[in-house]
């Protein structure tokens, strides 16, 4: 291929990518030590680029949002990472504030499905540990009590993730829960915020305080996190028929869950759906309005109620 010690006419095909792979490698190797050929390749490549640019044509306006949404789904941007990290930190601070108000005697009170508040917090600390390990947050030795141990680890997760940016958010983590499911860190962080909120609600029950709803963005995150997990859970329960789910209020949306023809429609507030997912509301207690195949709809709500972390 070498012509008088140079690449000769191969410069043209090389500049437009029309060489064989072997020739391409040979040319690249040659130009790395031949300034004359490198200059010609550079000039011809620039001309080839101009030919490409001369074809420029604006895409349809709708493509922009589609492309950016696909990109940010594949790798969350830093403002999204900060937002999720902030939501988690806010829930950690709220649960910690409630625990600070909890009289020592009430730490042994039963707490929802757990034998005591202390057992609940040990369970939460354990569920957080998968995310901590993936984030590179080591076990904190010497934490004096269960509350300090949980809080130190949780705040370290929030800080590390908030600083790390999108790359860490792409890493897979085993989610907490009965099913062994691995999902990207972004979703695991949403789950941590979800579980921390739910356990704060559990402590509010112990303290006889009224429930508190998260903001609409967090509800939307939880719904967006849980919906893709539901079809597999429905199939595992032998209940794969498609349901139209209408979630109302803050964080609400409408989706068809499952494949095939829709056999039933279920409508309920998004916040109550989140509490159902956490196992804090029974299907009947959600007040969901059901249309169509009642058996299929109830089956769906029953499966949804098993998606929690307890």
């Amino acid at each position: 291929m070498i012509d008088n010690g140079h690449i000769g006419d191969l410069a043209g095909p090389y500049a437009v990518g029309a060489c064989s792979p072997d020739e391409e490698m040979a040319v690249a190797e040659h130009v790395s030590s031949c300034p004359a050929c490198a200059t010609e390749i550079d000039t011809l490549s620039r001309t080839a680029e101009l030919i490409g640019e001369a074809a420029a044509r604006p895409p349809s306006p709708g493509l922009r949002s589609r492309v950016l949404a696909a990109a940010f789904t594949a790798r969350p941007g830093r403002s999204e990472v900060r937002r999720l990290s902030d939501i988690y930190r806010t829930q950690v601070a709220e649960l910690d504030r409630l625990l600070a108000d909890l009289p020592p005697t009430q730490w042994q009170n039963p707490c929802q499905t757990h034998s005591s508040v202390r057992a609940m917090l040990l369970h939460l600390t354990e569920n957080d540990r998968q995310v901590a390990a993936t984030a590179g947050v080591g076990a904190r030795a010497g934490a004096s009590d269960v509350r300090a141990s949980w809080r130190t680890q949780a705040l370290a997760i929030s800080e590390t993730v908030g600083r790390a940016g999108g790359d860490l958010m792409e890493r897979d983590v085993r989610l907490a829960g009965r099913r062994a499911v691995r999902r990207p860190m972004r979703e695991a962080l949403i789950q941590r915020g979800f579980e921390t909120w739910i356990h704060a609600e559990d402590v509010r029950v112990v303290l006889e305080l009224p429930p508190q709803r998260p903001d609409g963005r967090q509800i939307a995150d939880i719904v967006g996190f849980a919906l893709p997990l539901l079809p597999a859970a429905m199939a595992a329960a032998g209940n794969g028929r498609a349901i139209r789910l209408v979630l109302t209020g803050d964080g609400g949306r409408t989706d068809v869950v499952g494949d095939g023809d829709v056999v039933a429609e279920i409508s309920l507030p998004a916040e109550r759906f989140c509490r159902l997912l956490a196992g804090r509301l029974t299907p009947d207690a959600t007040g969901a309005e059901i249309g169509g195949d009642t058996v299929a709809a109830r089956g769906f709500l029953t499966v949804a109620a098993t998606m929690g972390c307890d």
């Binding site: 074809a55 420029a56 044509r57 922009r64 492309v67 941007g77 999204e80 999108g166």
Partner: peptide
């Protein structure tokens, strides 16, 4: 690399006509 969403929007606005036009051709 730092994850700036605005920057990707800026890059898209600047280069998408060239990329799309070339792909369409």
């Amino acid at each position: 690399m730092a994850g700036s969403e605005e920057c990707l929007g800026e890059v898209y606005d600047r280069y998408s006509p060239a990329v799309y036009g070339l792909a369409l051709q």
